[in-house]
Design a protein around this nucleic acid. Structure first.
Lengths: 210, 210
DNA sequence: AAAATAATCTAATCATGATTAGATTACCAG
DNA sequence: CTGGTAATCTAATCATGATTAGATTATTTT
């Protein structure tokens, strides 16, 4: 049996993107190292040159996703636009981040009870680096939520929004947005921008003062 | 080594509830037959007397969940209340279903890219019964979504609600509700009823005519 | 060109979880 | 009480996926 020629043109970034795609397509529990490797026409063993283990690779996907989306949301939240305009832009960034970037999708949807789950916590002692990165990821995800809270709180204080229970409102908003990563299909009726538009309309109407 | 005494007091329903709890706590990929069995103080092998295989057991959990929630939503949707009242009741039923019944949570959250996933589809030929039950589950889940669409469409036609893109609005609403299954903790600030109240307020405000 | 290094391959190992087989126990019926 | 059946146990098998080890290839450096 002839050995498959070695192809050294694949870099770490290619592997990371491949992993994000497989995650999105197959879900966490059906994402194997073999599938990811096949996506870039390598074998599973080759991935270990670039990433310590599967956890490290998948965490890298989540980190890329949260980096991307935070990089977009933070400047908006810090801007001087009125709160309602900021919220609309943030919803757009979040939704299109989910529809257009599979790593963002993974970061938002697949952290649930997967590699950052309670179940894996007892194994922390085996790999302190992964445990630390896991904590950092959770902190950044929480930061993401805080940005939404701050903007809505600002809108309420300035009389632009009606008073709501801000933490619950934000969980409602983020849940609806994250779920886009579950049901969205690129061949669907609407694209990411259009979906974001309608969602922003819904939540801004809900925040409209009486 | 003394053999563990056999305990025949455990019935199929006990196992099913145990599976739902483990699913909720550990997530799909960390739900092992061993864990489920331990929940009812049996061994993994004992589960196979009651359920054909793991898929059949987990599908039974999902079916129990969707049965439960459809059984609550259908009478509300068919009632003669005005659409806004119906929607509020349905949101309550859905949210409290998620917070109070782990099988409902599993049915709503864990169908995602798990045993009803695209990845498992190619294996249908191996177990036609599971494949058929899977299809039936998906059909019932779709029926669930249609009930919400119908009520909102009715509200719009009667002038109780402002015009919205109904499919997207419902995806937004269901996403927010299903996500409660992700973030809700029994020791949190609010219980299921209170969360449902706030959510209903949000979405009914968003539907209020101008 | 030769040597060193990076990257990949194949083959194999290991661990884990699902499941089976047969022995055993618990319970029920006659 | 005996026999039959339901239910469970322990031990073992099997399959699969993660990972390692060493050989090999591709690329870079000297």
């Amino acid at each position: 049996m002839a050995r498959k020629p070695a192809d050294q043109s694949v870099n770490k970034e290619d592997i990371l993107l491949a992993a994000a795609d497989v995650l999105q397509r197959n879900g966490y529990e059906s994402t194997t190292m073999k599938d990811i490797a096949a996506e870039v026409n390598l074998t599973a063993a080759s991935l270990y040159h670039h990433f310590r283990n599967k956890d490290a690779l998948l965490l890298a996907v989540l980190e890329a996703g949260i980096d991307h989306i935070l990089g977009q949301i933070e400047p908006i939240a810090a801007s001087n636009y009125p709160a309602d305009h900021k919220l609309r832009l943030m919803i757009h960034a979040h939704v299109t981040g989910l529809t257009d970037n599979t790593a963002v999708g993974a970061a938002m949807v697949f952290e649930i009870k997967s590699l950052v789950s309670v179940k894996t916590a007892p194994d922390d002692g085996r790999d302190p680096e992964v445990a630390e990165r896991r904590r950092a990821f959770i902190a950044r995800r929480d930061q993401f939520e805080r940005l939404f809270r701050a903007v809505i709180q600002e809108g309420i204080e300035r009389g632009l929004f009606c008073p709501v229970d801000v933490p619950i409102f934000v969980k409602t908003l983020l849940g609806a947005q994250n779920w886009v990563g579950v049901w969205y299909r690129p061949d669907g009726r609407l694209n990411g921008d259009e979906i974001a538009d309608r969602m922003a309309d819904t939540f801004l109407r809900a925040l409209q003062p009486a």
